[in-house]
Design a protein around this nucleic acid. Structure first.
Lengths: 143, 143
DNA sequence: CTGAATCCGAGTTGATACTG
DNA sequence: CAGTATCAACTCGGATTCAG
C-alpha cells in the first residue's frame, strides 16, 4: 500500500488528519475527513452491500432479499450514500417493469481487500470473542 | 447494536455464518456472530480506542482527552464493550486517587492490522471521495 | 480520579402505505 | 419493480449527578 505520510496534500483540512508521529498513532479530531469516511463505510449495512456487490451487479430487490433484516428504506439510504461517495454505481434501465442495477465502481473495488480482511478477522476470532464474553459475564454476573 | 428482539447466544449458530461458497460471498443473516462483531468493532469509537491503545496503555482520563468529542459516558460504554469482547484489558490500581489503565489484549492486537488498513484506505481515498461527493451533489442538485 | 446511573433530546430505523 | 413519504418506535449520546 501507499505510505501514509505522502506529502502531497496541500489541503489544509486533510492535513490536520494525517498521521503525525508514528504510523499507528493518528489524530482523532472529530471534523476529520477520515472519521467521516470511516463512519460511512463501517456502518451497519455498507460493508454487507459492498461485499455482495463484489462478484456481480445486483438489482435492488435482490439486495433486499440477500441482506437479512434490512428494510427497503435502509437499503435505499445505504445505497444512496455509497453512490454519493462514488463507491457504488447505479444504472437505471428504462424498461417495464423498471430495472435498476447496482455495481461497485473502481473506487469501491479498492475497498474490497480491507472489508474482506475485516470479515475474515471476525470469522476467525468469533469463537475467541464468544469465549471472552462468557468469561466476562461470569466474572461480572452479567450486568 | 443488537436488535431488540433478536434471540442470540447459541454456540452452534456461529456455524451458519461461515463462508459457504466463495471466499467473497457470505451469509448475511442478522443473528450472525460475524455481524455482531463487525457492528462492535466498526462503531464510532471502538476503532479509535483500539488505535490509541496500540502503543501504550492509557488511563481513562487520558483517553477522554485524546479522543476529541467523546464523552465520559461513551468512553465507558465503549471500553466496557471492548473489555467484554476480550479486546481490551483493564487494570485497577488500588491507590488514592484511583488509577485505571487500559491496554490491548493479544486478541485486540490481532485487529490492529485490519483497522490500520481501514484508516489508511480512508486516508488515501478521502480526496477521491470528496470529489465524488461534489459531482454527485452537482448532478443531483444537492438535495 | 474513575465511572455508574438517570434523564432526556436528537438522530436513526422500521412498518406501512403510496407512486411511477 | 423500485423506490418515496410519513409516522412511530427505538437507540444513541450528552449533560448532570452521585458514589467509591
Amino acid at each position: 500500500m501507499t505510505s501514509p505520510g505522502s506529502p502531497e496534500g496541500t489541503k489544509e483540512e486533510a492535513d490536520a488528519c494525517r498521521f503525525e508521529r508514528d504510523p499507528f498513532q493518528w489524530d482523532v479530531r472529530e471534523d476529520c475527513q477520515v472519521r467521516q469516511i470511516l463512519d460511512r463505510i463501517a456502518d451497519k449495512w455498507s460493508l454487507l452491500v459492498i461485499a455482495l456487490l463484489d462478484e456481480k451487479t445486483l438489482r435492488f430487490g435482490e439486495l433486499v432479499r440477500e441482506i437479512d433484516g434490512i428494510s427497503k428504506r435502509m437499503l435505499t439510504v445505504t445505497l444512496r450514500n455509497l453512490e454519493r461517495d462514488g463507491l457504488v454505481g447505479r444504472t437505471v434501465y428504462p424498461e417495464v417493469p423498471p430495472r435498476v442495477e447496482y455495481e461497485l465502481t473502481p473506487l469501491g473495488r479498492t475497498l474490497l481487500g480491507t472489508t474482506q480482511a475485516l470479515v475474515s478477522w471476525s470469522e476467525e476470532h468469533q469463537e475467541q470473542i464468544a469465549r471472552a464474553r462468557q468469561e466476562f459475564e461470569a466474572a461480572n454476573g452479567a450486568d
